[in-house]
Design a protein around this nucleic acid. Sequence first.
DNA 1: CTGGGTCGGGAGAGCGCTCTCACGCACGGG
DNA 2: CCCGTGCGTGAGAGCGCTCTCCCGACCCAG
Lengths: 348, 348
Amino acid sequence: MIGGPAGRTPTLEMVAAAAGVSRATVSRVVNGSTSVTPEIVEAVNAAIADLDYVPNRMARSLASRRTDVIALIVPESTSTVFADPFFAPVVRGVARTLADTDYTLNLLIASESRPDKTRRYLLGGNVDGALVVSHHVDDHSYVGLGDQLPIVYGGRPLNPELAASYHVDVDNVASARTATEHLVGLGRRRIAMIAGRQDMPAGVDRLDGWRQALEAAGLDADQAPVEFGDFSQLSGSQAMERLLGRASGAPSSDGVPIDAVFAANDQMAAGAIQVLQARGIAVPDEVAVVGFDDDSFAASFTPALTTIHQPAAELGAAMADVLVRRIAGEDPPRRTLIPTRLIRRASA
Amino acid sequence: MIGGPAGRTPTLEMVAAAAGVSRATVSRVVNGSTSVTPEIVEAVNAAIADLDYVPNRMARSLASRRTDVIALIVPESTSTVFADPFFAPVVRGVARTLADTDYTLNLLIASESRPDKTRRYLLGGNVDGALVVSHHVDDHSYVGLGDQLPIVYGGRPLNPELAASYHVDVDNVASARTATEHLVGLGRRRIAMIAGRQDMPAGVDRLDGWRQALEAAGLDADQAPVEFGDFSQLSGSQAMERLLGRASGAPSSDGVPIDAVFAANDQMAAGAIQVLQARGIAVPDEVAVVGFDDDSFAASFTPALTTIHQPAAELGAAMADVLVRRIAGEDPPRRTLIPTRLIRRASA
DNA sequence: CTGGGTCGGGAGAGCGCTCTCACGCACGGG
DNA sequence: CCCGTGCGTGAGAGCGCTCTCCCGACCCAG
């Protein structure tokens, strides 16, 4: 058993002794400071390897007033609605990115019942920065926190007080445009939308993208049928019923007033398709349907859902990246948009 | 702005000064030591509240050689196969349980390419204990680590070297028995199994439970048809094909040799059902199917899957609980089994 | 040859807390 | 009345590291 006379885990001091230099010099080498003679660097590194030295995080933090810890905050309500398979890959992306740095990831389920606990933790000098993953909007817990601690949000905060904050988001507008253009490219002209909750950025932006695509295609977006749901499958079905019930401008011969639907998420798309099928309307032949999210069930649905795939892991990675850069004092753009990809399957 | 003359965040020292006692006494109060005069306790607490004092974690750790940090280790391969919706609730359960303690959760994606990095982190005095969530078996990364650091596994480690370690698991055997008994209770007698990978505890145990139930029902488990898959949907389909292709002992009049299938997970159950439907075999009328996991898609599948629900959040909570108790010096049982629940839906 | 500038390295003072030890006091038995 | 015996409290020495000086060596211009 190697490891210096003192027996305990090796310390900076022991490395210094072994290398015949001072603690300060070892510290410089460990922290990659320039201005250390190459020979000495080598000697120190040899001693480090020899003793199997690992710097003590706590001591380092105490002295430097940095923690090398980044908090990943998941509001409890979000985590409860964990049916959402979006979250896990985000976390993975964050963790993987951070694995290449010296940062450690602190997962924090923020209980909304006592937000002050989280707040205290964050401001108590326990972390260098925070990542907030939330689909929640009416959440004021973090307002103002951003002034005292670098924070990066996943998903654009709708909350106007946070609008100027750093955030990483999927490019919902462009994605919705892509989805709609796909429908246009298929020759569809009466393209309806089942939009999501308008108190969420994803809901607003996807509706927006659809409008843009219609206009770009020379279709009248204002006259195009829109119904709203709450992102649930049931609400998708109900929206579809309403869509079919409309006495639209130019119903086709069989009475179906539309030939395509863009749903703001896969759940609602699935609900819509079920209604369509129940009415004997063929998907995609009579009505093509595009969803959004590429949910886990999308591929195995019948018909398999054409949808927008969200690179959740990349989003997480980007969040971590932006935060690390902020902490390092760089000035990354406040808004980072992650491109998506249209997955062509059977439904459109 | 309150906060003592020094201006910075309040320290123990400042509290001591404000309360007119020594640092040591404040420390005693903060750490809930007995043997402090009630009046003094009160005075100190008043000072703490007044200054808005929060103990500095790093300093505390440095001095006490505890970290109050628990690592949650997710092997990268597990996290990549994140289609598995089992993980997120486990994490949530862990985080929630820990939220009521002083422990902080460190999420660690263990890159399998350089396991030593994780090892060093764990043994580098950064954590007080670790939780390992893995479906992986041929993983020797943590062998021996358990001697130096309290570790609790989620899922029983198949690896014999770890067999004696602390672990929390779903009661796979009993659950599989329950599932199979349900089929027996439905009057089925030719109950096949699509088993999972036999290098995973879940694979082995579920097969075992099925056998036990058959025997308990007076059926010949050795003659009962079993095919193996790898837990993927495709493998479930293939296994089903093989099952149907068998020249089994007593095919029913229409040539279908079985009247029920227990699949080791929902993915494979779904694959099996698709094959059955493609062949025009009615589910559940001709062949009843029970899955396992209660995957997110299970309820919306057609037919809705009868399956075993795994209380993943409870499993996570139990893991955290066992670890905390171990760290506290208690001796919790090495093995904790979490009961499951059969969810009756349409497929059986 | 000398003075100012530069640069590598050492000394040492903390960072905020814990914990051992020893002290002072009140009490009770010899 | 004196000396244990306890109990509550304070003093002080670290925990392992960072970082600010500061010093000595070296280089070049004057």
